[in-house]
Amino acid sequence: MQTRTPALIDHTTGIQAQDVHAWFDRLHALRGISMTVPERKVTAVIGPSGCGKSTFLRCINRMHELVPEARVSGRVLLGQENVYDEAADPVLVRRRIGMVFQKANPFPTMSIYNNVAAGLTLAGERDRRKVEQIVEQSLRAAALWDEVKDRLHKPGTSLSGGQQQRLCIARALAVSPEVLLMDEPASALDPASTLRIEELARELANDITIVIVTHNMQQAARVSDFTGFFLDGELIEYGPTNDLFTKPRDRRTEDYITGRFG
């Protein structure tokens, strides 16, 4: 069960997972993940379904523990701070680490505008000017502004699937997170919408750290700077995307990227 830690990566630290284990009741879903996610880069996590990649993502922003009977051990450093520290508050962790889900999940009873503003207004932000400004910025950053600026008060669910996903990205961006976790954000979308999400991820990485889980290797290759390969709850190999896809060091990685299983 030896995990190879990747060679030291020449970047400032974004997120550092240290010996992270996760359980669902008795199922040991993550078995000691240590991984350094560099700042302002796109890091992809790939692997066959059930390998623990989504669980890992949900351990970073402490969403995993919301599942009844779920447990986590180990440390996840955000900058210098351990998000699992005794004194750490998951709510504050999640405000700094945003998340986009596999299936777009706009709040069904809220308008486009209110969806994006939700993170601010629900946290008690009362300055309407400021909220308006941030909503526009976020929608622009999510490349959705031009499409929705004339119908901001229509329901969020009235948008197309791809637009809804970008709406969710805008919503996550509105609370200005330092990290954005994307859990197979394009798996339910058509190719054109997928491309837009990928472009968006690349663009956003100019400002924030992106971790994207995907089962689509081409997507990982297109979008990411670094890639980690998960198998059976372990991090098998991790390194610059180019290296991992062209000269994998582990046999199992090679098997996976050449399509021999999974």
């Binding site: 969403m63 999940n105 939700a118 946290a123």
Partner: peptide
Amino acid sequence: VPQSVREASLALGIPIWKTTLRV
């Protein structure tokens, strides 16, 4: 109410009580 709605709110850093009451 779909679980994804709760998750969306919690992932925004909204505490559980506010997620329940306001979302």
